[in-house]
Amino acid sequence: MPKRRHLARAVFAAVTATVLGVAGCDAVGGNSPAPSGSDAASARPSPKPTPAWDRSPASVAAVGDSITTGFDACTVLADCPEVSWATGSSPQVDSLAVRLLGKANAAEHSWNHAVTGARMVDVAGQMARAVAHKPELVAVMAGANDACRDTPEAMTSVADFRTQFEDAMGTLREALPKTQVYVASVPNLMRLWEQGRTSPVGRQVWKLGICPSMLGDAESLTAAAEQRRETVQARVEAYNKVLKEVCAKDRRCRFDDGAVYEFRFGGTQLSQWDWFHPSVNGQARLAEIAYRTVTN
């Protein structure tokens, strides 16, 4: 989400200063009369069964944004993929890939194509790269950056968000029609503001440009500031509705039914650097939600 290099020194200064989701046909002979009535009904092909969801896929690919890259979980303004909820190797997180595949297999059969700062428009490209591995499951978490813009007016429109997610799913389906998809909901950005605004460190770091549409002027409780935050929150909820609806049209897609959005991130689950991205503990909670959704 943030721009790393030119902010790193400023973040360290701020921290220091504040101390820290077989059809069965009955053959009819060529000379036999066509069946009618109840016989006709029984002679029709049976509908194709809904494909069974595989609770133990043999490979996992991840796409998305900085949450999936483990940004700010280990060190300031840096990715930390080893603690990624989706594909990380850290025993502290016990990632989705490790839970599904085992540690040894996860190292060889999981791939993380998420990029810090990515928005939904970028996911189709990430999906194209993930397709090359022929994964049996793709984990998707994207959308926070679509709401985290300089102003509410700059947020991705709901219509564009829908088109972009459909494009990403189309990219996958064109190449891998049987690959399963887990879709995580967009986190509750209002909750993150509520948690971090009481932290002197968080407020100082937020001033450097982290999710300004929600976190800017963090201490202000004016009607204008509250309306701005409500506008962003409403957009996040609209994005989650899109994720649910698009996923529901795909028989091999599971949405988390808002579990990530509803998770109440607290101080322990948030990065002590920016009070916005998940900490190692937060990444572990995201892994739990994903695993529960995939295996239930």
Rank of each mutant, 00 (worst) to 15 (best):
V158Q: 11
V242H: 01
L208Q: 04
D160G: 05
M214D: 02
P177L: 13
A168G: 13
D150K: 12
C211L: 07
D160H: 10
M155L: 05
T156R: 14
E194M: 09
T171Y: 02
E226C: 09
L176R: 15
Q195L: 08
E245S: 15
E245L: 12
V183N: 04
D150F: 07
E194V: 07
R235W: 02
Q195F: 02
F165P: 00
S157R: 08
V232N: 01
T179G: 13
E237L: 07
W206L: 04
R162P: 00
R162G: 00
G209S: 05
I210G: 01
W206H: 08
P212G: 01
D167S: 10
N240S: 05
S199W: 04
W193N: 10
V181K: 11
I210P: 00
V158T: 11
P177M: 07
V232F: 09
G170S: 12
T222Y: 00
K178C: 05
R191F: 01
Y239A: 03
S213E: 04
R203S: 12
D217H: 12
E230V: 09
T231V: 08
G170L: 05
L192M: 08
L215D: 01
V236E: 00
V158A: 14
R173Y: 06
R149W: 05
E230W: 06
E153I: 00
D146Q: 01
K178F: 14
T151Y: 11
L215T: 01
F161D: 00
L208C: 02
G216V: 02
V201S: 12
D146P: 03
K249H: 09
D150Q: 10
L221P: 00
Q227K: 14
L189Q: 09
G216I: 10
T163Q: 11
T231Q: 10
R191G: 14
W193C: 02
L215S: 02
R235Q: 12
C148K: 14
T198C: 08
R228D: 12
V186I: 13
E245G: 14
K249T: 11
V242K: 01
M155G: 04
D167V: 02
Q180D: 12
E153D: 13
R229W: 08
K244R: 15
A225L: 13
M155H: 03
P187E: 03
M155P: 03
V183A: 15
F161C: 07
E237T: 13
T179F: 12
A147M: 08
E194G: 13
D217G: 13
V242P: 01
V158M: 10
Q227C: 06
V205G: 11
I210S: 10
A154H: 12
A184E: 06
P152A: 06
L208I: 06
V205N: 04
A147D: 02
A223C: 06
A224R: 09
C211P: 05
D150M: 06
E174I: 09
Q164Y: 07
